[in-house]
Design a protein around this nucleic acid. Structure first.
Lengths: 216, 216
DNA sequence: TCAATCTAGATTGTCGACAATTACCCATCT
DNA sequence: AGATGGGTAATTGTCGACAATCTAGATTGA
C-alpha cells in the first residue's frame, strides 16, 4: 500500500502527492485546484496534472465543473453519515463472504493482530482489521469500491475530524466478536455483528459531533 | 437519462458515444482502444479522447495499463456474480432507507408503474423499479455507486448476455412484495425482500448460464 | 451609497508535435 | 521447425501554445 513508492508515470506521481496533500489537509477542503499553479509547483505540464485531477475526481476527492475548475470536496457531517450507511451494507456483506472464504491461517493472523491491538493499545489497527476482512471476501468489485472509491475519502474525514478514540476499547471488543463469528464460519452472524459495529460507530459520530451541525 | 443530449465539453460528447458503443457491444469486449484511430473517427484531438478514456476507466468499462493502452473490459460470469453480491448489499440498504424517506406520492407512482408493467408485460420497467428505490434512499453516495460506478457495467452485461426473461413474471411478484413493505414503512422487511430478490436473480444466472462456464 | 455594466486578466478546454517505450515482423541460430 | 534476437513502425505519455470562457475589479449610472 506504499503509494509514493513507484510511479509508473508522471501523472501517477502527481496524483499520489495531491491525494496525500488533500487527505492530510495540506490542501484545505473547499479550496480551488489551480492548474497553472500546481503545474509550476510540481514542474510538470498541465496535461499530466489534468490527468491526475481526473483521477482525484474518480476518488471523490475533488468536484469539477466544466469551464470553472476543480475544488477539493467539502466534508459535511451529512455525507459522512451517508458513507457509514454504505460501509454498513458493503462491509456487512464482506464479513459474510469472509466467513466463507478466509483461510484458517488468515483468521489466525487476524486474531494475532487483535491481540496485539489490545496489548499495544494502538487504535490505528482498527483500519487493518476492516481491510483484512474486505480482502478476505475475495470479491474484487467489493474491495474495489471500498478500497479505491471510498478509502481516501474516509481517510480524509479521519484526518479532518480527528480520531474517534472514545470508542476504541468497545470497538476492539466488537472486533473480537466478529472474529469469533468468522472462525465459527457463521457468515450470517458475522454480517450481523459487522453491521451493528459500523452502525454503532455511526451513532457515536452522530451524537458526538452532530451538535455543532455544519452543512446540510 | 438521455446521455447523448447535451455535452458541455467535447470530451463529454466523446465519452457518451464511446460509453454507448462499448455497452451495446459495437466495440467488442476485450478489444483495444486505439487513440489515434478513435481521434480520427470522432475528429477530435487525442487530449479530449484521453479525457474520455479516463472516465471510461472510472466507470469500469475499460482497463488501462501504462505505456500499453486501454482495452474494453472482458465480461466474465464470475465478475457478474460478484456484482450481484454488491447489488444485494447496496440495494438492500437502499430499500431500507427508501421505506423511511420515500413520500407517499412516490410510492403510489411506483405502484402505478408496477401495474403498468403487469398489464403491458414490458419487462424493461424492471430497471426503473430498482432505480426509483435507489433514488428514494436519499443517499447520494449510495446512488452514486449504483448509478455511476456500476450502472453502465450492468447494462453492458444485459446487452451481452441477453435478457433474463425467464424470471420476468416471478420478479414482478417480488417487486410487488417489496413495494408492500415500503408502503408499510417496514424498512427491515423491505431490505430483506430486496436482498432475497437480488439473490434469486443471481442464483438464476448461476444455474442458467454457468454450465458453459467461461473464464474464471 | 449601492447596483449593474463593461473591461481586463486569468484559467480552462482543446489542439498539434515530440520523445520514449512498446508491439510486431523478419532474419538468424540451434 | 521452433525459439530467440534485432530492427522498424506505431502508440503512448508528455509538453507548450492558442482560443473561448469565466472571474474579478473598475467604471458608470441611479
Amino acid at each position: 500500500m506504499g503509494e509514493l513508492a513507484d510511479a509508473a508515470t508522471v501523472a501517477d506521481r502527481v496524483f499520489d502527492s495531491l491525494c496525500d496533500a488533500i487527505v492530510s489537509g495540506k490542501i484545505a477542503a473547499g479550496s480551488k485546484i489551480s492548474e497553472p499553479e500546481l503545474a509550476k509547483r510540481f514542474d510538470v505540464s498541465r496535461a499530466s496534472l489534468r490527468e491526475a485531477i481526473g483521477r482525484l475526481e474518480a476518488c471523490n476527492l475533488v468536484n469539477r465543473r466544466p469551464r470553472v475548475g476543480a475544488r477539493v470536496v467539502e466534508l459535511s457531517l451529512h455525507e459522512l453519515l451517508e458513507i457509514y450507511r454504505v460501509r454498513e451494507a458493503l462491509e456487512g456483506m464482506a464479513a459474510r463472504l469472509a466467513a466463507e472464504f478466509m483461510s484458517d491461517k488468515e483468521l489466525n493472523d487476524l486474531k494475532a493482530l487483535l491481540e496485539d491491538e489490545l496489548q499495544l493499545d494502538s487504535g490505528n489497527s482498527n483500519h487493518d482489521f476492516h481491510y483484512a476482512i474486505v480482502q478476505g471476501s475475495q470479491n474484487r468489485r467489493l474491495s474495489h469500491l471500498l478500497c479505491d472509491d471510498l478509502y481516501h475519502l474516509m481517510r480524509m474525514y479521519r484526518y479532518q475530524l480527528g480520531r474517534d478514540s472514545g470508542r476504541a476499547s468497545t470497538a476492539s471488543k466488537e472486533h473480537g466478536l466478529i472474529l469469533d463469528a468468522l472462525q465459527d464460519r457463521d457468515g450470517e452472524m458475522a454480517e450481523l455483528l459487522m453491521r451493528r459495529h459500523i452502525r454503532k460507530s455511526r451513532a457515536y459520530i452522530e451524537k458526538m459531533i452532530m451538535p455543532r451541525s455544519q452543512g446540510d
